[in-house]
């Protein structure tokens, strides 16, 4: 089975990277399920999307007893991505929105082929790479060695990495620190170097996990420019961002995840307002996600109405106890609203 060659005209049509006609499928995600096994997690008291809903305080003892039967040893299962299906095409730039812990990063990693599915299938056309400041490297050794490790892990040869070495170091702008162990870097410096390394190669499928939040303002601007370049060169782009403006400017399509489920899949000006409404609505009282009315190009779609109903049936004490988090996000969103 051959990997389709990168067709040169796919990104040549429009240099802005927007409104490109979607081409052939490059990513097929079919009924994807990902379940984390969390070790040493103890009793149930988490607002991550687990399928066994948390009960209120008085039922804590009962809860504990029932939990015990479900958890072998100290292991808890967190159902992070539930039955997500979609098809991404060449030339598409897909943003993923959702609240903290809704499974965005997990979905991204699965799309990049880094976390094997527990159920369902993921098909890729070409090489996928995760671009993220969290991409782990060896912290005890020097930045220079890490450039070699990271570059080669991205599929470059040793010679190619050496060729791009200066460019990477210049971009990361960490000066003589390049010869010191990465553990001595400030968090911003580490993030900058990791970003520079992970953008050294252009993959067919680019997966960006909040990479733009790294470093200071100056670096963020530089990083945004770099991501834009990559996006124009890569066949298909996925990105997670909490900034709706970023998504609106750069994405041709938005997936909205809620507790691991795909709530809505459509154009940005369709999904983003609905998502903002749902998030700000949730912070005031109960959220009611608006329906997935998006016109699809034959795309799979999870209907928001059923997903939202299912969700609303569950009592989620975390939401009420800690209204700060959804509220804060809602603030960010309301500024984004036109």
């Amino acid at each position: 089975m051959g990997v389709p060659e990168h067709s040169p005209d796919a990104h040549a049509q429009d240099p802005t990277g927007q409104q490109r006609e979607p081409g052939e499928p490059t990513v097929v995600v079919s009924h994807l399920d990902i379940i984390y096994r969390v070790f040493g997690a103890g009793r149930a008291r988490s607002n991550k999307g687990q399928d066994d809903g948390d009960n209120a305080e008085p039922a804590a003892l009962l809860n504990r007893l029932t939990q015990r039967s479900r958890n072998v040893g100290g292991v808890r299962r967190v159902h992070a991505v539930k039955d997500v299906s979609f098809v991404a095409r060449r030339g598409e730039s897909i943003g993923i929105v959702g609240r903290n812990g809704s499974g965005k990063s997990t979905l991204l990693r699965a799309v990049a082929g880094l976390i094997p599915p527990d159920g369902g299938e993921v098909w890729l056309g070409g090489r996928a790479a995760l671009l993220g400041v969290n991409a782990a490297l060896v912290s005890q050794v020097s930045g220079a060695r890490n450039v070699m490790i990271g570059g080669q892990a991205l599929g470059l040869t040793k010679a190619q990495v050496r060729e791009r070495f200066d460019e990477i170091v210049d971009f990361a702008d960490i000066g003589h620190f390049i010869d010191l162990p990465m553990s001595s870097y400030s968090s911003g410096m580490g993030a900058r170097l990791r970003f520079a390394i992970s953008t050294a190669a252009v993959p067919d499928i680019l997966v960006v996990d909040e990479a733009l939040s790294a470093g200071d303002a100056q670096f963020r601007a530089k990083a945004a420019e770099r991501v834009k370049q990559l996006r124009d060169q890569a066949g298909t782009v996925f990105m997670v961002s909490h900034n709706n403006n970023t998504i609106r400017q750069t994405c041709t399509r938005v997936l909205w995840l809620e507790q691991g489920q795909l709530v809505m899949d459509g154009e940005p000006n369709e999904v983003l307002p609905a998502y903002s409404r749902a998030v700000s609505g949730r912070s005031q009282g109960r959220a009611r996600a608006s329906g997935g009315r998006g016109r699809g190009r034959g795309r799979p779609r999870v209907h928001a109405s059923s997903a939202a109903k299912k969700r609303n049936r569950r009592v989620r004490p975390q939401d009420r106890r800690d209204g700060r988090q959804p509220g804060r996000e809602a603030d960010g969103e309301s500024q984004d609203e036109q």
Binding site: V3, P4, V28, E121, G125
Partner: peptide
Amino acid sequence: MSREEARRLAKQYGLQQVGV
């Protein structure tokens, strides 16, 4: 999209399954 449809689509365009 059923599982079979997804599989057929992926095969048609020569995509490779990950996690296998």
